[in-house]
Structure formats: structure tokens, C-alpha cells
Design a protein around this nucleic acid. Structure first.
Lengths: 140, 140
DNA sequence: TTGCACTAGTTGCGGATGCATGTATATTGC
DNA sequence: GCAATATACATGCATCCGCAACTAGTGCAA
């Protein structure tokens, strides 16, 4: 019965919006489920852990071996709350994949540094990660 | 040092795949966070609850007022595990938005039926939902 | 210096999810 | 008809997440 969605102008239709959103959800869930399962099964790594490791390794490659990352900076980059990121880092540290280093200039801040084991674990997981992306996103 | 990504052919580059995936994550998180907050604040509804209500209402509109949905069917439709969906339905029922009806032909199965209050709550939330989609996905 | 507001990160807590399992019902093979 | 197997949903449990509160450190101002 009710009011039709705004189909008249060239502006995005409500129905189009919804179908875009559903497609986005579909792709997101398919990919993240496959990723999470593959990373967990093959590398004992959650998606969040992988994403954080990737940022740490990228930062190292970009800026030389001594560049680390601030916790907050990492949080926005991987779309997690600060508290969630704090715990991801705690898990990485517990598993020997990263290190918390006190920032000397501001003793509240923490630098997060990937360890050698972290680099190796990431390198291995990266192959799996890219393969899943190719499988799942390639056939979009 | 290492091997370059497969940049040669017209096939999707690894780097393209990753940037596609990151963009997807960005859009997903931005939209789902905004949605979840708006639905919670304005309508006491989680995203999962909203999605399930939407499926129930759609089923009613498609097939007349007596059509319900199987739990498992709903689960795949909203990208939740069967157990998660069982609990979503439990919450909807607790809040008076849906009803579990025993399926007479197969007494293991249950039909989920939206209540009048559920329809009203959905109708109100729908406006918010579409507005957020327009804001967040429109400016893609 | 001392007081106060602000920032960085951590932690208590409640909620949502997936996996494995449990319970009840249906179906199949004999 | 009956045992074995499969299906549909519910539940115990562990994990992860966000919010709010907390701790520690910084900076500014009187």
C-alpha cells in the first residue's frame, strides 16, 4: 500500500540501496568467514591478528626496521575499538608475535613491534590470505 | 627482494584484490556501525534482529499473512549460524516482536511469525535503516 | 609547585557469535 | 516394527567485541 520509494529521479532508489547493502553483506560474510577459518586452521591466527600483523609489517617495510605503530593508529586502521586492539596486541604478545615497547618521548604511549616469529607467521599466513581473497572476491 | 604480485596479465592483481578487500571492510564497518548504533538508540533493535524482522515481514508480504519462515532458512538469509539465529528469535519472542509456532507437519521444525508489535517496530526502524544506508552507502 | 583537564592504554562487564553437543522428531534399512 | 541414522532446533561453553570506568602520564595555568 504505502509510499513508493523515490524511483523518479536519477538518484539512488531505496531498493537499489538495500540491494547494494545486501550484496555488500553477502560478500563481506563470505570472505571473512572463509578467511577466518583458513587463518585459524592453517596458522592459528584470527582475522584481527592477521590484519594487525600486516599493518606492523607494512610499517616496517615503509619506514625501515625501527618503525612501530601506535595502538590507536592501529585501531582505526583495522576498524577496531581501542580496547579491542589492546587485547589483540596482548594476544600477539602472549603468542610471541609482537612486542610492546614503551615510547620514551611520551610514557603513556606504546609502540607495537612485530617479532621475527611474527614476520614468519605473517609471511606464511599471507599466502593463505591472498589465496582466499582470489577465490572469494575474484569470482565476485 | 621478493616475488612481485602477478601484474602481467589482465587477471586481477594481488594488490588490487587487497585494496578491494580493504575497501569492502571499510564500507562494511562504516555502515554496520552506523546502522547498529542508530537501530539500538532509536528502536532497541540490533542489526540481526532488524534483518530477521525484515525477512519475516517480506515473507508475509510475498505470501500472505499466514506465511512464516523456518529458522534455518532465516539463518542462511541473514548470514548467521543456526544457533545464533535461534537466539535472535528467542530475543524477538522475549520482546514480543515475533512468535514461535510449532510446525504441524514436522514437529521438529518451527515457524517464526512476526507479531503486530513486531511489524510496527520494524516499520519505524525501517525508516532509520534506509536513512543510514542513504547517508553511508550513498556517498560511496 | 600544585591543581586540573586531557590523552594513551588497560580492564571489568555484558552481549553476541560460532562450534560442539544435546534433545526431540523424522526417515531409512532390515 | 525396530534399530540406526539424519534432521531441526536449543543450549553449554569459549571467544571476541564495544562501552564505560580506571590507571598512569602529560601539559597548562595560577
Amino acid at each position: 500500500m504505502s509510499m513508493q520509494p523515490d524511483t523518479i529521479s536519477g538518484v539512488t532508489t531505496e531498493a537499489q540501496l538495500v540491494s547494494t547493502w545486501r550484496a555488500l553483506l553477502e560478500r563481506y560474510h563470505a570472505t571473512s568467514c572463509a578467511l577466518d577459518r583458513a587463518l585459524n586452521d592453517g596458522h592459528q591466527l584470527g582475522m584481527s591478528e592477521f590484519e594487525v600483523l600486516e599493518r606492523l609489517v607494512e610499517a616496517e617495510n615503509d619506514g625501515g626496521p625501527a618503525i612501530h605503530r601506535r595502538v590507536q593508529e592501529l585501531a582505526t586502521s583495522v576498524h577496531l575499538s581501542q580496547s579491542a586492539l589492546s587485547r589483540v596486541v596482548a594476544r600477539l604478545e602472549r603468542d610471541g608475535l609482537a612486542l610492546r615497547v614503551m615510547c620514551p618521548s611520551d610514557r603513556r604511549g606504546i609502540y607495537v613491534q612485530v617479532t621475527e616469529e611474527g614476520r614468519e607467521r605473517y609471511a606464511a599466513a599471507r599466502v593463505t590470505h591472498r589465496a582466499i581473497l582470489a577465490e572469494t572476491l575474484g569470482s565476485s
